[in-house]
């Protein structure tokens, strides 16, 4: 089991009002599994993804990633888990603007201490980024930047890949192309993928779909 959530709850405080976002969410994700998480804006999709990615802590419930329970880990151990087992792709591409494309792609795998140059070369080739390697992110188009973000995530050979609206900033054709490549690479590496999306087209391409409404899975 790569990811397991059990009765996860999360609320946010707005002034004096407590707003429940997740009200007891439970599900599991196996290796090579792909899951689309859907829901209206504000339904708690991104919050769930952040909790699964060890970026945020749940108020209640338990979360396991690669068999480790997140609530039992301190900040350093959660950071370690993010380096080695988890990769994140956001709607904003979150590249490091002062590093070249090559350095950006190698970054997370270098942090995890397991850079596999052959693997990286394969990913770069699969995503069609060979020509862009020495450029800086600012010189790339949005689609190219998102491809770099995907390459960076997969290059680290994560067990769990979490993507938050990864194609939300891209046009339809570019979005499809990026998704194709991401799914292909995930299939090749056996990574578990959870993708947060509004798009029914994207969701339809995942093995499983879950929908969040009022903080609960439908």
């Amino acid at each position: 089991m790569v990811l397991r959530l059990e009765g996860v709850k999360k609320s946010f405080r707005n002034n004096d009002e407590l707003i429940p976002v997740l009200q007891g969410v439970s599900f599991e994700l196996e290796a090579s599994d792909t899951l689309a998480l859907r829901g209206e804006s504000g339904s708690g999709k991104s919050t769930l993804l952040h909790i699964a990615g060890a970026l945020e802590a749940a108020d209640a419930g338990r979360v396991w990633v690669s068999g480790k329970e997140l609530t039992q880990l301190n900040d350093g151990e959660r950071a370690q888990l993010r380096r080695t087992d988890i990769a994140l792709i956001f709607q904003q591409f979150n590249l490091i603007p002062s590093l070249t494309v090559a350095a950006n792609i190698a970054f997370q795998s270098a942090l995890s201490g397991t850079p596999d140059l052959v693997h990286i070369k394969h990913i770069v080739s699969a995503l069609g980024l060979e020509e862009q390697m020495q450029k800086y992110p600012e010189a790339l188009s949005g689609g190219q930047q998102q491809r770099v973000a995907i390459a960076r995530a997969i290059a680290a050979k994560p067990k769990l890949l979490l993507a938050d609206e990864p194609t939300g900033n891209l046009d339809e054709i570019t979005a499809q192309s990026v998704l194709d490549q991401m799914l292909k690479l995930v299939a090749q590496t056996g990574t578990a993928l959870m993708i947060v999306t509004h798009s029914t087209n994207i969701a339809a391409r995942m093995k499983r779909q879950l929908s969040l409404r009022n903080g609960l899975l439908e």
Binding site: G53, T84, N94, S112
Partner: peptide, 15 residues
């Protein structure tokens, strides 16, 4: 700020 956020989300501890 962006870089710091990214680096932290990629698993670099705050300390």
């Amino acid at each position: 700020r962006g870089m710091i956020r990214t680096v932290r989300s990629l698993g670099v501890p705050m300390r």
